[in-house]
Amino acid sequence: MLNIINLTKTFNPGTSYELRIFNDFNLHINKGECTGILGANGCGKTTLFNIISGVLRQEKGTVSLNGKIIDNLKENERARFIGRVHQNPSAGVSPSLTILENISLSDKKCQKFTLRKLINKQKIESYREILKTLDLGLENKLNTEVKYLSGGQRQSLSLLMATMNKPELLLLDEHTAALDPKTSRLVMEKTQELIKSYNITTMMISHNVRDAVKYSDRIIMLDKGEIILDVRSGQITEKELLNIYNSRNYGSPLQEAV
């Protein structure tokens, strides 16, 4: 599915702030799996996502998806097969447009945008049906501007919009980190439903060890751009993961979650 070979990335090359974040990094992600990615701040999780989705360019190495090398594709060209949900609930929506307008835009994702009217009245019912699956009552707020929604509602909508065209790879960048525990659980469960029903290959960054163990098929831990742990989620318990966290002085993220 996703193959990263000999990836090297350096920030601020040639200056005194030079920081080599990846050095000959290799990673293979299997089709249909949900991979949880753990690690302290600055270990390269988000950089990895930025390289995969084309926001950043690597100096060396190749990224390929389903056997096709995607290194030369721009961020917007990669959007055809890569969906991404950000930590900030506002990053995946257009706040001054209504829910209906946002959904209509994402329904046209990666097709040709023309001078035809965006809102298709015949499709409103089907959008209502999709929104109903979120169980947040958004189907009755189609004409509400997204900026008036709560963070959880916005993030659920972003998730829906990112998965609407069934991407081959979904990147979740701490997408529940800005939400309260209850909403975070709801969004997480919704995520799992969507991933399972569309069978999307997923990479999920999380600081919540419990979520990682519960929802992923495979767990990877990064440290300074290297994989220090790579296990199937059944092979490790929450406690063992926490011990690794503690031994590396990351602090225990679970304490706050309990």
């Binding site: 721009k74 961020e75 209509s104 835009l105 945008f113 001078l115 035809r116 965006l118 990112a162």
Partner: peptide, 24 residues
């Protein structure tokens, strides 16, 4: 009110979204 028009509004709102829709 057209598709292009809405993308113009979205560009001012959130460029990341426009890129994630596959558009420059």
């Amino acid at each position: 009110k057209t598709e292009v028009g809405y993308l113009l509004i979205a560009t001012g709102d959130n460029e990341t979204l426009v890129k994630s829709l596959g558009e420059d």
